[in-house]
Structure formats: structure tokens, C-alpha cells
């Protein structure tokens, strides 16, 4: 009795009920009758290697009940491709499903397979942007967008502007910073920030972001990343570091990330180690005490011995 058992269109198939493995399985789920029935027919379809319109319908049914069921998604993709189904139609259905199940992640791999097969991505970046309205840091949606950019060569199709817009909404959105890095540097053979003009633009972008919110790890990481990729010394960032953390004004540090950067810059300077030690002391005792052991480790690596209370400097 049930949707499939009662349907003559399915009468040729013998359902395969769940094998629980024994009389007293661990974490046994009391499946609803609908779920158990649908799963039983799925097993029968898969056992027969059947890729058919009715199989496609059944996967839709099951995905509605349990969108986290990776097997159903993978099987559905095989059906779609075996049947040469209309992939635009599939995308429309996926849009609804994605919006209804914001946290679901299998859907993004499926979308990836479908759009890859389709060979075109009209409307995709717009849809992805809609997803970010609900969760602007959704890891899988960002990963999907990175795939889109690479697959369809969207490097110059407004992606940089998109990251600017996302960071305009939340300058702390680290996912958007990562995407910006990818758009600037991820293209095969691209010089990225190795090009002086691009570098100047990106340094300027990060500095402006720091101007808005200084105690924000993302743009500081971005600046360090730029120097590293170009093989430039961190010393090139001394100006901005000192703007937000100066040892001459230990009371007026505006960013622990600036102070950390300053410590690294000073450590590379001739005769700068002692000062670097002072910066690390300040971090440990005042500006970032939760990482005291890490700052102590850094100081130890410079051969400067143990931390000192930086309070005296402050007073």
C-alpha cells in the first residue's frame, strides 16, 4: 500500500525493503511509511540500473523528503544525462530546491554537473547572488561560484565589482575576500598582483577597507598575501602597519593585526628584533592576550626570551 505500490506504472518492479542487518541495529531510524516505500523502489531501480523518466520522478520525490541523500542526487544526475533531459528545466527545479534548502550542499555539486554539461551559464551568477542574500558566507555557494568563473572564463565579467559589492555590505566577509583573491590571481598564467598596476590597485583596496574597520583580519591577510605572492618584503607595508599600531604610541594601537604585522616587519630589520619583541609583548599583555602563548612562541623564535609585561610602556 502506498504511492508506488498502488500505481500500475510501477507494478513491474519488486521493491527492495531496507535490510537493517539484524534484529537490534544501532541508531535505527523509524522511517515514515512514505520514505521507506520510496527508498525501497529506489533500491529496486538502482539494482536494475534503470535510467528512466519514472526514476527521475522518484528521485525528485525522495529529494523532497531528504535533500541530504547524496546517492539520490548522484543517481538523478546519471538519469538526466542518460535520458538527455532538458537541463534548463532541471535548473529551474534546482533553483526552487536550493532556495527551500539553504543549507543543503549536495545540490551544489549537482548544479555543477548540470551546468557543466549544459556548457553555458546564463543566469547562474545572478542566482548565486540571490543565495548570498540569505547567507553571504555559504562555503559551497562560493566554491560553486569559483568553479563557474574558471569554467566559463568569467574573470572579467564583473566579478571584481561583485566582490566589491559584497564587501561593501560586509567588509568582514572573508569569503568575499577569498573570492577577490581568486578573481585577481586565480587565472592560469595571470600575473595577478605580480603586475605593479594590479598590485597598487589591490593594496589600495585593502587599505581602504582597513580605513573603514581596522580590527578586521581579512584585509590584513590580503595585504600579507600580496607581498608574499610578489616576493616583496613585508617592509613595504610598514607605513600602513604604523598608521594603526605604532610603538611610539603604545596606548593608541587600533588593530592587533597591524601590531602583529609590525612585529614581523621589525624582526626583519637590522637591529629591529628588540622592537619586534616589544610589539609581541604588547600583543600578549594588552591587545591580544588570548594568544599570549603564540606571541611567546614568536618571541622565543626570535631568540628574545620570554614575554615581558608591556604595561610599563603603556603607562
Amino acid at each position: 500500500m502506498g504511492k508506488y505500490a498502488d500505481d500500475p506504472a510501477w507494478s513491474d518492479l519488486t521493491p527492495l525493503p531496507t535490510d537493517e542487518g539484524g534484529s537490534h541495529p544501532l541508531a535505527q531510524i523509524a522511517y515514515s511509511a512514505d520514505y521507506e516505500e520510496t527508498m525501497s523502489y529506489l533500491r529496486a531501480l538502482m539494482a536494475a540500473n534503470e535510467f528512466s523518466p519514472r526514476a527521475l520522478d522518484l528521485t525528485e520525490d525522495l529529494i523532497d523528503m531528504n535533500p541530504a541523500h547524496y546517492t539520490v542526487w548522484l543517481y538523478r544526475a546519471q538519469c538526466l544525462f542518460a535520458l538527455n533531459s532538458d537541463l534548463h528545466e532541471e535548473l529551474e527545479w534546482l533553483n526552487e530546491t536550493a532556495l527551500a534548502h539553504q543549507k543543503n550542499y549536495q545540490i551544489w555539486h549537482h548544479r555543477n554537473l548540470v551546468v557543466d554539461k549544459l556548457g553555458e551559464c546564463g543566469g547562474e551568477t545572478e542566482f548565486v547572488a540571490r543565495m548570498f542574500e540569505k547567507d553571504a558566507k555559504n562555503y559551497h555557494v562560493w566554491s560553486y561560484r569559483q568553479w563557474l568563473v574558471k569554467r566559463f572564463d568569467l574573470w572579467e565579467a564583473g566579478e571584481l565589482e561583485f566582490t566589491e559589492r559584497m564587501l561593501g555590505e560586509d567588509v568582514r566577509n572573508n569569503s568575499a575576500w577569498n573570492h577577490r583573491w581568486f578573481v585577481v590571481n586565480g587565472r592560469a598564467g595571470a600575473a595577478g598582483v605580480g603586475d605593479p598596476e594590479v598590485r597598487a590597485r589591490e593594496v589600495g583596496f585593502a587599505e581602504e577597507a582597513i580605513g573603514k574597520v581596522a580590527q578586521n583580519q581579512s584585509p590584513w591577510n590580503y595585504l600579507r598575501g600580496i607581498m608574499r605572492r610578489c616576493g616583496k618584503p613585508l617592509a613595504e607595508l610598514k607605513g600602513i602597519a604604523e598608521q594603526y599600531a605604532s610603538l611610539d604610541r603604545p596606548d593608541a594601537v587600533r588593530s592587533s593585526f597591524a601590531l602583529d604585522l609590525l612585529a614581523d616587519i621589525l624582526a626583519e630589520e637590522e637591529d629591529g628584533k628588540e622592537q619586534a619583541g616589544r610589539a609581541l609583548d604588547l600583543l600578549a599583555s594588552r591587545y591580544d592576550p588570548i594568544r599570549k602563548n603564540y606571541w611567546a612562541y614568536r618571541k622565543d623564535q626570535l631568540g628574545l626570551g620570554e614575554l615581558k609585561q608591556a604595561v610599563a610602556d603603556v603607562a
Binding site: L26, A27, Q28, I29, A30, Y31, S32, Y35, M39, M65, N66, A68, H69, Y70, T71
Partner: peptide
Amino acid sequence: LGDLPAPYAAMDASRPWL
């Protein structure tokens, strides 16, 4: 690890983790 009610069908693909 005991008997789980029907809504746990959402974990049907991840019971080994439990």
C-alpha cells in the same frame, strides 16, 4: 545510538557518523 524517530530520516545518508 538508540531508536530514532522519523525526522531522523534526514540523517539516513549519514548514520555511520552517528
